[in-house]
């Protein structure tokens, strides 16, 4: 039990610093080309235990989003997207539910539910998060083409990074 809490705290810190110290400079470094915005931190929300209550997930997403926004200097933008993703999590979970149902003591990881299942689960939520993020970032649907392009490119890179992390560490919980 305390193991799960410890793992999640560690994951929180690791993903957070990976995002703000390594991935942020990487995406800002390409001048004039902001299509690529690799988001790895949503993985923390993705991997939270299945039995965790909705309000707790939302609050964690809120805290994480605010901390990310502090570094990106964009108060509220990452937070709102991450909140949206956290809220959508339970609906996506019931959408991709396997035939035998969930064991509520598990966390939704690749090791527990298989690669196919995890890829499906992660890609839906990451796509939602990125689309929401880029919409709020533009703040108008006049540039819907821009929003969709940015979402697409960021999505490809983000999902590659996330799957890489999953293969490297392959956590059970």
């Amino acid at each position: 039990m305390s193991n799960i809490v410890f793992v999640n705290i560690l994951r929180f810190l690791a993903l957070y610093f990976l995002q703000v110290l390594i991935l942020r400079p990487a995406s800002i470094g390409w001048e004039g080309f902001f299509y690529v915005n690799v988001h790895i931190y949503p993985l923390f929300i993705l991997l939270l235990p299945l039995r965790m209550s909705k309000p707790a997930i939302l609050l964690l997403a809120f805290v994480m989003g605010l901390l990310i926004d502090m570094f990106y200097d964009s108060p509220g933008i990452h937070t709102s997207a991450l909140l949206f993703m956290a809220y959508a999590r339970s609906y996506v979970l019931s959408y991709v539910e396997p035939r035998e149902g969930y064991n509520v003591n598990y966390s939704p990881t690749k090791k527990r539910f298989g690669l196919n299942w995890f890829f499906q689960y992660a890609s839906i939520l990451i796509a939602l998060q990125l689309f929401f993020y880029h919409s709020v970032e533009e703040f108008t649907f006049v540039y819907i083409i821009d929003i969709l392009l940015k979402t697409f490119y960021s999505y490809l890179l983000s999902i590659i990074f996330i799957m890489m992390v999953m293969f490297l560490f392959n956590p059970t919980d």
């Binding site: 939302l58 989003g65 909140l83």
Partner: peptide
């Protein structure tokens, strides 16, 4: 969710 999104929107 609505409350937190509201706060976000305000900050944005």
């Amino acid at each position: 969710f609505l409350l937190l999104e509201g706060i976000c929107f305000y900050m944005i």
